[in-house]
Design a protein around this nucleic acid. Structure first.
Lengths: 109, 109
DNA sequence: TTTAGTACCTTGTATTGCATAGTATTAAAA
DNA sequence: TTTTAATACTATGCAATACAAGGTACTAAA
């Protein structure tokens, strides 16, 4: 049986990963593995099979673009960067996040 | 077409309502309509069809109990109150929430 | 006795998030 | 030359949420 808190975390995380991706790419462009590393550094464990569909979806929504860059350590890397539309969406997400923080503080206080 | 921020809010909210219910009931027992009112006061709009199944599930998980109380303004009310197990779960959820806050601050900072 | 207000509950469904598992490509290392 | 490590990508499907819509039942007032 799965521990309860794991499920709680999983549920809370839903809808947050897209926000996290935009947060990362708002600071600098990055390729998938680097994004995964940064998420891991923030204690959010994400695997490739989770991240790629998200990146593709955000790219298709016009929130991201990408460019190829050669690497001496394997195949070319796909560097994603945020678009103007992506920054706009990120602003909306900041707002939503702050509202959620406010709501929790109101209820918990 | 639905506005983007509404969708963002909806996604972020997923998984948060159970936490919010426990937050409310940790302060005082309440019946469904009162819970909806308090959620609304925190800018979280929830309808009955959403709340009732959640309350029933949390009751079945042993997180809540309830007692009936007569009302002079209509049918009896079902007052829910949080159990010890519910407070334990609430503690886990507080932890998960704080971890999420930390993660976002790390990524956004 | 009908109507309005309050309260509780159920069912079905759209959405969709994301995990699992597997494939393909490149270059360096053995 | 073969293996390994790093990277990119796809397909499939489970699990879970929250909402919409509809139903039941009790009380009091018109």
């Amino acid at each position: 049986m799965e521990s309860n808190i794991d499920n709680v975390r999983a549920q809370m995380r839903k809808g947050m990963l897209e926000y996290c991706i935009l947060c990362i790419l708002a600071k600098r462009e990055a390729y998938a593995s680097a994004i995964i590393d940064e998420l891991k550094a923030a204690n959010l464990i994400v695997v490739e099979g989770t991240l790629y569909p998200l990146l593709i979806r955000q790219k298709n929504q016009g929130l991201l673009t990408y460019r190829w860059e050669e690497s001496t350590q394997g195949p070319p890397r796909k560097y994603y960067c945020i678009t103007d539309k992506g920054r706009e969406q990120l602003g909306d997400m900041d707002t939503a996040w702050q509202e959620m923080e406010t709501a929790i503080n109101t209820l918990r206080g």
